[in-house]
Design a protein around this nucleic acid. Structure first.
Lengths: 119, 119
DNA sequence: CAAACATATGAATAATCGTTCATATGTTCA
DNA sequence: TGAACATATGAACGATTATTCATATGTTTG
């Protein structure tokens, strides 16, 4: 008599031990949520382009907009997303705001992605 | 006289050299697209949960559904996405289909994500 | 202060995505 | 062969998201 789970398939009770083991190794809900939120940020070509631009050097918003041939507004919105994910940082200089990479893991994450793709 | 880009901000021509340099280092369109597609796959808690489940051991669809307390259909749809991204592989045994991880980069990518989050 | 400029942001829209529901496919076993 | 089972899949729905447009904020300079 099951009580805590959907009755997906009774005969799979054979693997209850595997399920129990995996359940114990599952990260906490909040961690899973944060991980998904982080990877979502990498899941957009515009944001990946921005990160690559900043690999090259620090840049102001209009440099990036010019480089990617997109509107200043679109870039600004995406920089906000990158900022919230703590992937970029910025410094203000007069009217301009210069953005740069905020984290060493960014390259590693992107390169692992490339590495997976080129298998 | 500009010809190939939106006139975002004329006075930023100061940084044209940076923009040109970054343009030269930008990955090809197709690579950017593929990278975004790959990271999108990691951008969902259900799929991350499935990957973690498979870290633990190979599992059949209904094991995963039971573990995550979700419908068989939802899991099956997500496994399709993971399969297309070549993150999981499967073997058929009778009525069941056993899924397992298909790539060594998966752990590295997820761990880099965790590493970034816990800074 | 006013004009010019660089950036930020809220609302709207179109596109994409995850889950559900119903059902199809394919396997085993009586 | 037919019933039971495990999985896959198409369509539909609601939720999320990227870009655009209009405009606001904040800085510099005449």
């Amino acid at each position: 008599m099951k009580m805590n789970s959907i009755d997906v398939c009774e005969s799979c009770e054979i693997h209850k031990n595997l399920v129990t083991k995996a359940m114990g190794e599952m990260p906490a809900e909040e961690m899973l949520y944060d991980m998904a939120e982080l990877f979502k940020v990498f899941g957009d070509t515009t944001r990946i382009r921005i990160l690559y631009a900043l690999f090259s050097s620090e840049m102001c918003v209009c440099d990036i907009a010019d480089l990617l041939n997109m509107t200043q507004s679109a870039i600004s919105h995406q920089l906000k997303v990158l900022k919230q994910a703590r992937l970029v940082k910025f410094r203000k200089e007069g009217k301009s705001v210069y953005y740069s990479l905020d984290d060493d893991h960014i390259k590693t994450i992107l390169y692992q992605g490339i590495s997976h793709l080129s298998e």
